[in-house]
Design a protein around this nucleic acid. Sequence first.
DNA 1: TGCTTGACTTACG
DNA 2: CCGTAAGCCAAGC
Length: 111
Amino acid sequence: MDDLLVERVLLAVEQIPPGTVVAYGDIAALVGTGPRQVGRIMSQWGSDVPWWRVTNRDGELPADLLPRAVQQWKREGVALGTGGRGCNITRHRADLEELAAAWATACDRLG
DNA sequence: TGCTTGACTTACG
DNA sequence: CCGTAAGCCAAGC
């Protein structure tokens, strides 16, 4: 596995502000990889980061993760999606430029 | 080396 | 709204 890629993805996810969400593709574009890699990394190493703030482009997550994600969204004030399969990413999408800036800073701070 | 898979995305019927 | 196809890139066999 590529440890550096994993580090960068997890670091990016940690920068997502509470009450906001981003899509896999957003993280992918930020760290410079493909969307599927982000999903793969989240499924394997995502358990200790705010993974519920990373959804697909429609604000949805797989059914088995949905119950736990919904609890977090409600706690953080994120509105649920109309279909009940995810959250309203249109309304709660994080500012990608701010996220990129925070991520760059975090990378520097980490060394 | 080559083929399949996946917490994805965009486009087209 | 659902199925298909193509693109994506790292992992696993």
